[in-house]
Simulated assay, not measured.
Amino acid sequence: MNNEIKDHLYANLEKVAIVTDPFPYFYMCDVLPAQYYEKLIAGLPVNESYDRFPAPYESRLGLDLSRKTLDKFPEGGRAIWEEFEAWIHSQEFLDKIAAKFQPFLDVNASYRKEQLKKAATSPSTVRIEPRSLLVRDYSNFAISPHTDSGSKTIVGAFYLPKDEAQKPFGTSFYRARNPAFTDWDSERFEYADFEVAYTAEYVPNSMLFFMKCDHSFHGVEQREYSNTGRDVLFWTPAIAGKQITDKPLSLPTELFLKKGGFLNQVKKLFA
């Protein structure tokens, strides 16, 4: 990967501010150099390379992005996606994004204690499995408010349209009408019980990152969308109790913990 391409994203990352309402997130435009972005979207797979999601989400096609699935990309686009996949699943990329959310990640400490014990790879680090999913959503796709699975840490949605024709077809963030309502297990809830706090515009070369927590309610609104297909790459590094991929990453355990005694408990496992 050309360092100029990385530096383009990292420079934008440095400038963008974290928004904390309704939960920590940031949204960036001009994520990649324009020419690189054009080559990336030109190399996306055809529909037949994706798997269709089961009902009620059959308007979504999905393809896990990994080195094992690169043969599903058209020959002309395979090389650029190979280098892009290697970059976004690298320790370097994970460290950059995790550092941005560092002040907030310990808010989930009470939920993560057992998870962190199982994922410990040393007295001070936990295993992180890099995961990404390419999706292509058609006009009837919608998903009601949910918080995402508990193993996820930070979620990135890299929007990959050719133009701004589907601008409203972005991810929406929700605020529960009951301010005390939370959920860690990622059930799907009724739209009527929430209000839209923010919708990220689905425009070319933009990316939305947010932190999983017990009130990270997000989804896609039920609207009349164009049926040209919405291409999104979801980047979802997860705390993993066992090694799933052949190149697991890691993060410091203390990122996820309130200051106190639990880190010492983890260290005792390796004594």
Results as ranks from 00 to 15, higher is better:
200 A>W: 03
140 N>L: 12
48 E>R: 07
112 R>F: 12
224 E>L: 06
58 E>H: 13
71 D>V: 11
234 F>A: 07
73 F>I: 08
80 I>Q: 11
88 I>L: 05
3 N>Y: 15
15 K>F: 05
171 T>G: 00
90 S>V: 06
228 T>Y: 12
120 A>W: 02
249 L>A: 05
2 N>C: 14
40 L>N: 08
46 V>P: 07
73 F>M: 07
45 P>I: 02
43 G>R: 09
216 S>P: 09
130 P>K: 01
97 I>F: 06
162 K>C: 10
121 T>A: 11
225 Y>M: 03
45 P>A: 06
190 E>D: 14
195 E>I: 06
204 P>M: 01
67 R>S: 15
34 A>P: 10
86 A>M: 05
31 V>Y: 04
228 T>G: 13
208 L>A: 04
82 E>N: 15
59 S>I: 13
222 Q>E: 13
60 R>W: 10
214 D>E: 15
181 F>Q: 05
38 E>K: 13
158 F>I: 09
91 Q>N: 03
70 L>D: 05
253 T>S: 15
82 E>Y: 12
166 Q>E: 14
123 P>N: 11
144 S>C: 06
218 H>G: 00
36 Y>F: 14
268 K>I: 15
192 A>N: 09
132 S>H: 00
137 D>S: 04
24 P>A: 05
131 R>E: 11
121 T>I: 15
220 V>E: 06
184 W>H: 07
97 I>S: 04
121 T>N: 11
210 F>S: 07
76 G>V: 06
196 V>K: 15
270 F>W: 04
267 K>Y: 06
161 P>S: 04
108 N>D: 15
162 K>A: 12
86 A>L: 07
155 V>T: 07
193 D>N: 14
76 G>S: 09
249 L>E: 01
184 W>T: 06
194 F>S: 03
12 N>S: 14
145 P>M: 01
113 K>E: 03
33 P>Q: 08
173 F>E: 02
112 R>S: 11
118 K>E: 14
43 G>D: 11
229 G>M: 02
269 L>K: 08
180 A>E: 13
14 E>M: 10
169 F>N: 11
146 H>T: 06
230 R>S: 03
256 F>P: 00
122 S>M: 00
34 A>W: 12
33 P>G: 08
156 G>V: 00
252 P>Y: 02
92 E>T: 09
76 G>T: 08
81 W>D: 00
60 R>N: 11
99 A>K: 13
246 D>G: 12
52 R>D: 04
205 N>P: 02
244 I>C: 15
68 K>W: 14
271 A>S: 15
51 D>N: 13
189 F>L: 09
149 S>K: 12
111 Y>D: 11
257 L>V: 01
160 L>R: 00
109 A>L: 10
11 A>V: 02
155 V>Y: 01
250 S>A: 09
153 T>R: 03
258 K>V: 09
45 P>C: 04
142 A>F: 12
61 L>S: 08
